[in-house]
């Protein structure tokens, strides 16, 4: 295991991305990401799933909540007794599993994307402002972040969702509440590093307002390196949403979210394994695509940062 240590470091270090030194940070990370096979594979998979979720709204005329007792417990196509009308089989009420899974996918997409976008915007706004302005405001905002982060997300979620009936908006709000402090912390560090830079002082001298400097100058430098965190977070939000539904404190049946379907299907694991297992495959592929893209972004970011030293 140790035999590689002397050879690995002495091998020529990979050249930092050539001739991109003039480019903005975000562009350089993106250039390095775009060529990664991980990213392409992940993005392709993600695009395919997104397309399936979107198209299913228009193409499938099957109602995901329509019951059909004659066809209940139809197994999926590759097993015995299957019915081609239901490629992924049906559940205990004869509802089509494929259309249910695709609607579940839509809900997961919607909630995950909305929650990630909102927490990114709120968290980075707070972080940029706190880091840039500094002083008492920074102290105060960061203490708020500390307190928020000391409440475990799952406890926060179940406390709030235990009190009120879960709606998609409330679930999004809970996810945002649990996640924005991470972004605040990350962007604050970036903004803090930029505030003393010459270009910021120059802009000040020219009479630019704080907001203008933050939005036009600091944000484009401080935000792109966090893109990978947002992609990983999207995956985390999606799992979290499904977990809440699964535990019975998130969205409720008959809404066919992936968490609800899997929780439901668990009762029929012995006789009809596909009800719980197949929707999970969709969820897993979705998370896999995000994790692959996130990994590619993270590696590109690290390469750019290390090369820049």
């Amino acid at each position: 295991m140790t035999s590689d240590i002397s050879t690995a470091p002495l091998a020529a270090p990979k050249p930092a991305l050539p001739s991109t030194r003039e480019l903005a940070m975000g562009k350089r990370i993106w250039l390095a990401t775009r060529s990664s096979p991980w990213f392409l594979l992940g993005a392709g998979l993600f695009g395919l799933l997104l397309l399936m979720a979107l198209v299913s709204v228009f193409v499938f005329q099957v109602d995901p909540t329509k019951m059909n007792f004659v066809d209940k417990f139809t197994p999926p196509i590759f097993s015995e007794g299957a019915n081609p009308a239901f490629p992924l089989g049906t559940d205990q009420l004869g509802r089509d599993m494929l259309s249910r899974a695709l609607v579940g996918l839509q809900i997961t997409f919607l909630i995950g994307l909305a929650a990630t976008a909102l927490s990114f915007v709120i968290g980075s706004a707070v972080g940029l402002y706190a880091g840039f302005v500094g002083g008492k405001i920074d102290q105060l905002l960061m203490r708020v972040v500390d307190i928020q982060m000391s409440i475990p997300p799952i406890i926060l979620a179940i406390t709030i969702l235990g009190l009120a009936r879960a709606t998609p908006a409330l679930v999004i709000a809970v996810l945002v509440l649990a996640t924005w402090p991470n972004y605040a912390r990350l962007t604050r560090a970036g903004a803090l590093a930029e505030r003393g830079q010459e270009y910021v002082r120059a802009a000040r001298v020219l009479g630019a307002s704080d907001i203008r400097i933050i939005l036009l100058m600091v944000a484009p430098v401080a935000l792109p390196p966090m893109a990978f965190a947002a992609v990983f977070d999207l995956a985390r939000m999606m799992i979290f949403e499904c977990v809440l539904d699964f535990l019975g404190i998130g969205l409720q049946p008959p809404t066919p979210t992936l968490g609800v379907i899997i929780a439901d299907g668990r009762k029929y694991l012995i006789n009809a394994w596909w009800i719980a297992v197949l929707p999970g495959v969709f969820l897993m592929l979705l998370l896999l695509s995000l994790n692959m893209m996130g990994t590619a972004l993270e590696r590109a970011r690290n390469a750019v940062f290390e090369g820049a030293k």
């Binding site: 995956a235 799992i239 499904c242 977990v243 699964f246 968490g259 899997i262 929780a263 299907g265 668990r266 694991l269 719980a276 297992v277 999970g280 969820l283 897993m284 592929l285 998370l287 896999l288 995000l290 994790n291 692959m292 990994t295």
Partner: peptide, 13 residues
């Protein structure tokens, strides 16, 4: 990446 993409409640089932 594959393992981290498997939700625990699903892999448990």
């Amino acid at each position: 990446s594959l393992l981290v993409s498997m939700p625990s409640f699903w892999i448990a089932g």
